[in-house]
Design a protein around this nucleic acid. Sequence first.
RNA 1: GGGCGAUUAACUCAGCGGCAAGAGUGCUUCCCUUACAAGGAAGAGGUCGCAGGUUCGAAUCCUGCAUCGCCCACCA
Length: 1135
Amino acid sequence: MSATQAAESALPSTYDPRAVEPRVAERWNAADAFHATPHTDIDCARSPFVICIPPPNVTAALHLGHALNNTLQDVLTRYHRMLGDNAVWLPGTDHAGIATQTVVDKRLKQAGDKSLIDYKRDELEGKPGREHFIEKVQAWKDEYEQRITDQLKAMGCSCDYARQAFTMDEPRARAVREAFFRLFQDGLIYRGKRLVNWDPVSQTALADDEVESKDIDGQFYYMDYPLCDGGGELIGGHVTVATTRPETMLGDTAVAVNPGDPDRAKHIGRFVKLPIANRVIPIVGDDYVVIPDADSDDSKARMASGFLKVTPAHDPNDWEIGQRHDLAAINVMAPDASISIDHGWPPEEKPEENNELKPLVGLAREDARKAIVRWFKERDLLSDQKPYRHAVGHSYRSHVPIEPYLSDQWYVKVTDDRLAGAALRAMAPDQRTPDTQCTWTGDHPHRGDAPADWEGELRFHPPRYAKTFQTWHENIRDWCISRQLWWGHRIPVWRYRLSDQAVQQARLSHADLEAFRVRRDLSEQYPDMIASNGAWEVTPTQRPPFDVAEAVNNRLISSEPDEEGVSHVFHSDIYVCLKSDNNQIASQLEAVGFERDPDVLDTWFSSGLWTLSTMNWPDATDELAAWNPTSVLCTAREIITLWVSRMVMFNLYFSGQGAEGPSDQGGAAQASYSATGPLDHSAPSPQRLPFRDVFIHAMIQDGHGQKMSKSLGNGVDPFDIIDSHGADAMRYTLTSMTTHTQDVRMPVDMIDPHSGETFTPKFVTGSGGVKVAAPTQERNGKKMVSSYGVASGQAAPTGDMPLARNTSEKFDLGRNFCNKVWNAFRFALEFLGEAGEGAQGSSPSAEPGAKGVEPDLASKWILSRLARTIRSCDDALNRYEFAPYATAVYDFFWRDLCDWYIEAIKPTVRDDAGQQATLAACLDASLRLMHPAMPFITERLWEALDEKRPDRSVPGLELRRWDLLCHAAWPRAEASLIGEEAEREWGLLQQIVSAIREVRATHNVPPRQRVQVSSKVPTEHARHTMTRRQYAETLAGYEGREFGPHVERPKGSAAAVVGDITIYVHDLLDEETERKRLDKRREELAKAVKQLEGRLSNKGYVEKAPADKVQETRDQLAGRQQELASVVAQLEELE
RNA sequence: GGGCGAUUAACUCAGCGGCAAGAGUGCUUCCCUUACAAGGAAGAGGUCGCAGGUUCGAAUCCUGCAUCGCCCACCA
């Protein structure tokens, strides 16, 4: 070793993560340490361990919630890699459709650049707007994908970065097209007219999860509708409907009452004449309607009038009622939510001739509400108005109320048994709740029991989350997958609109015929690329779940037009789904008038394929064969419905079809890698889960109990913590925080960039009532910018006003631990090297500990503790119990190894080869055990340990060498290492040492000052006490004098009692202190004795409790009584 | 409205039928003892949210209540 190398490898006295982490990362990188290749040969003993990362959104950088998520995945991956599994962790990011598009648009606006509105205008004017906008988003994505990757690497995540994926890159796009194509072909994708969550400002449909509920102070309006006969003649009288949304009354197509309502059911079958619209609408009976009850606890019952206006096109409940009663849905609004007669108003009502209606047309919905209320008031038709507070869905991007809006969208029929039903049957049987509330009425396929031959393997940890998964699927509704956005996977469907002639006269034009002909020719020519039998038009009155075959037969003219060109199709356009991105086919379609659907897919469509697409499905890859299903999914509970569900359904569905296409194999087929020999890719595949285990971890909240999130702006960048505490400290702390609870709180502080001091920032209430750090902070007259200020675009760092990084003292735990580990090694490496070289001889396989030296008590004890610690770590990690794992390594290393073992052997270890061997083994095994949580520091110390002491095995614990710790074998201790006798012995010694230390401390004996100690011990203990003496003397700082059964208390000494041993610490003359000390001890013991006596005097306890418990109590009592007697005797002697 | 969870030391959290109830941080006292002051030794600090119940025995299981949080839900 050269002098410079020696200098480099010298360890400074404080652990400096900044110096260590990049170096270690470089070593891993140079060794390509985390790259894995699938083993398709089942003779290979290495079982796969696979994790797909929950791909973070490219909307922003990662925060501590992600740090937690990824730390846990890395702990598992590194653990299994060390176990010898073929471990791989597949990284990637998510394009996050609407979220990213919104963020980028907002930034463009903030910067005063051309934003989405401008690009949309360009597009309308025939200029390329869409492409240019997507370029902007793409640039954002590139930046944040890189940043996220950098963050993961800085955290030490052992991903196989060569396999990095993005939900919108080409391999993933192929998977999306393939999946869409197959679902389309199988009739599981359809186009439907339904109510969607419409954002009138952004003018797009929103996913349910993009709608935020807010409580709004509104009004309940009571409006009178006059009764009439079926022909519209008023017959006198009226009914009063109650509503919070008077403006939607223009779209009413019925009034509903509860058939069980004694006062109002008689109206069922009658008609009312809808004011303003003059539409004659029926009164129908429906259970949904709440019967009024002024005394009810239900506010709705108190407010209700018993008559419900039914507006199927503008209210989801009313939509359902409309389905049940075959009511028309009349859309009365334009996409911007202004009143309109052009978007579905029945032409036969001739709305343009309606003078009452005319003034309302074009009004915004809020203005229309006022105008209509005024109209009713003026005519004395508004019988009441009451204030009412209720929840209203708002768009999370534009913050305006969502309009339930009738529009054409693409749906995945997840209600089909092949999807939701399969997901339910995939659940581990013992995690299914038998009698949950299921909103589906009647026979529903999902409710069926799992077939006997299907063993569901999907398992949630903790198990309570299985219920969320189950109820979601039992109550699932078809999934709207189209979004009127630009950033996303474009829907691979081309549409040909039939001519008016075809629609109105059921005659096809020449152009129509040509479109049919081209579609048919292409279908024959490219059957694996083009699908056309899955699309149809669903009328508003058709009720889900649909029967595909029925829909195809009745609604779609799947047949070609006959010789005369007459089609049997009504209202249907021709839809063609293209699997490949073959421009030639597309251009042939476009040449005859087909147009590509402008919408993109819901972002969860591509995320739902993640476990397949990351392994390059639909190709039959080795990865898919060997690594799907993956081992475990680590995620947060908020995403169980959005993501976990969809991956389960998709992975089951597509794997069940096999590589060759759809098949009916079901659950009977064998897993193809359970056969002997290499994999046969052409074999039919069984349905496979995307993962067997789902681990749901806690949500990180800020110091105010608010969820840490990107959109709220209270996220903390892991880089900040790495900066203040180091990556290992962050990881260790996060690991130790992971219990099976739901939330953990993380109070966040800031670091003053001017002074480097930590302080608690000033908080302000931001949008949505969220408490956030003020965008700018001031301290000692100097200003700084908070990360919230930067993230929200409200402030930018400058020279005078730099960014103040976040930190949290919670991470001190991990930092202090790292420092302790570092220094323990620094100490040990000082002498392990020299002596170790001499001890090991020339043979590299020599085991220094096995040289016939019987290990001393301390060594036996620490090896026993080590063996138990290894066992605890395995137990904990196999159960996804991260905090107990973290505590186990912490307690072993710090409490046992440093506080007791190293302290005990300090005087002797330099000359004791056995102790050196034991110490080396403990250090080595500790590094292995700690590595999954703290990879950098342990890898660095491994290197140092290897240089000094290559052989660390001891009998019962083989510790083979590896170049890199991250590849080293996880320790396996033989049961023989556990020594109960040594543990008992050492436990007694610890008590003696503590007792002497306590005496010293209360009598203010300086630590360096040695004291004289003698001890009265019963004969049978004398020998043991003598053998322990050297350790006890070291640990408690004394010199032993007399030990024996007849030792008397020397004058002026203090006494401590441990079991049947009485220890005298000489020459402590402060009797007052001694009396107080003993008094306190006596009280404690008396209390314990009383409690134990009480327990034993309880007849029930003695009779019913297990005998060993009772005996234990008796022994305890005897021990305490003896101690108490000794203490009392000492007190008496003091008098 | 439905579901899930939390309430234990000043703070953040473990423990989930039987330890005199634990940890980290903070606090007090003493120590810069050549591994570590990001450290060592000792210590103070808790009617385990409230009220019932089950049990020989409850922080732990059950019921109810209160407070807080999250998820889901159709805005009459």
